[in-house]
């Protein structure tokens, strides 16, 4: 299987980023490379603190200006370096090209204003529509989210809706300006599985029908496997492995990906000990030299004192692991 061939909307190459803090620089990203093409759904997975949110916030310039510093590598978002955009250009990119959906929908909605006013406002900010046209567009978007009485929901305040309903409203808002790219950061983590399944299928259908690309951030391997065309597995601010979802799951290559999948309950017989990953995440104030997974890796050896590149290890598969690189070369 080859990688999709649409236009590259977002390209991040070897991005390293630190947060300056009183305890010293936190090396949050350590050479992340990833790209997103038009129309595809890309998953970013990894455990807490591995840099999923920071990577996408850097791409959309949402990180705190004072403390976050890019120390190497670069970002191209729709062909531009987001760090060099003027405030005006940035507004255009955020409004028309990219939108974001976050985990806690309450924070993204104004609690004191009706749902309808908020959607209409966002539509009219970016599109030349009169109030009436914007209202009917908003109702249509809510209907697309399978909200059964959209007119009633338009009149409601955020607190009157369940978490799942609020998240559907936010997804409708994210699609409202017909963006080319949507970044969804753990949009279903706080929700029940039944609501999650509904929301995932809404995102999938809406993205397919509008041709919108989606970056879907999650710590849940099973969720991304059901939704995404391609995956990036992050570890300590670096891509450990990338490839099509089917191929990564069928044959995970990086020792971290393998361990992440094997420690899930459900793969061994009930009551049997689950596979454990030894040790803990490296301290990002002082990450080890060489492969960042070295201290926890059962396959580590001398070579791993050097940083492994994210190298091709098969068709549309890449892994940052000396073992896999060597096996590919000798095959």
């Amino acid at each position: 299987m080859s990688e999709p061939s649409g236009d590259v909307l977002l390209e991040i190459s070897d991005l390293s980023l630190v947060f300056r803090t009183s305890r010293g620089p936190i090396k949050a990203l350590n050479g992340v490379s990833l790209n997103v093409r038009a129309g595809e759904i890309v998953g970013i997975v990894g455990e807490s603190g591995c840099g999923k949110s920071v990577t996408m916030m850097a791409a959309t310039r949402l990180l705190p200006k004072g403390s976050a510093h890019i120390t190497a590598g670069g970002i191209r978002l729709f062909g531009n370096d987001p760090m060099k955009l003027s405030e005006r250009e940035l507004q255009h990119v955020r409004g028309k090209l990219v939108s974001t959906i976050f985990q806690e929908p309450m924070n993204a909605l104004n609690p004191t204003r009706r749902i309808g006013e908020q959607i209409v406002e966002i539509i009219r900010r970016h599109q030349r529509l009169d109030a009436k046209a914007a209202t009917s567009k908003a109702i249509g978007l809510l209907r697309d989210m399978l909200i059964s009485e959209p007119e009633r929901i338009m009149q409601a305040y955020p607190f009157e809706l369940s978490g799942g309903m609020r998240q559907r409203v936010l997804i409708a808002m994210a699609f409202s300006c017909e963006p080319k790219l949507i970044i969804a950061d753990e949009p279903t983590t706080a929700l029940d599985v039944t609501v999650q399944a509904l929301i995932l299928s809404l995102i999938k259908h809406k993205a397919a029908s509008t041709g919108t690309a989606v970056v879907f951030i999650s710590h849940d391997m099973a969720v991304v496997s059901q939704l995404c065309d391609r995956l990036y597995v992050l570890y300590a601010g670096r891509v450990a492995e990338a490839g099509t979802t089917a191929s990564v799951l069928a044959a995970p290559a990086h020792p971290y990906t393998r361990a992440l999948i094997r420690c899930l309950p459900g793969l061994v017989a009930p009551k049997q000990p689950l596979e454990q990953i030894l040790g803990t995440l490296p301290d990002l104030l002082d990450p080890p030299a060489g492969c960042l997974f070295k201290a926890r890796c059962r396959e580590a050896d001398e070579r791993c004192k050097a940083v492994p590149p994210l190298a091709a290890i098969g068709a549309a598969r890449r892994a940052a692991c000396w073992r896999r690189i060597e096996e590919t070369q000798s095959a």
Binding site: G164, M165, V195, Q196, A197, S225, Q226
Partner: peptide
Amino acid sequence: RTLLDAVPRFDRPLASIAPRAGEL
């Protein structure tokens, strides 16, 4: 059955869930 159908799993595609399934 509704609950288990919604549980994300590696070995099967996304379930299509009726919208009412989401509201207690």
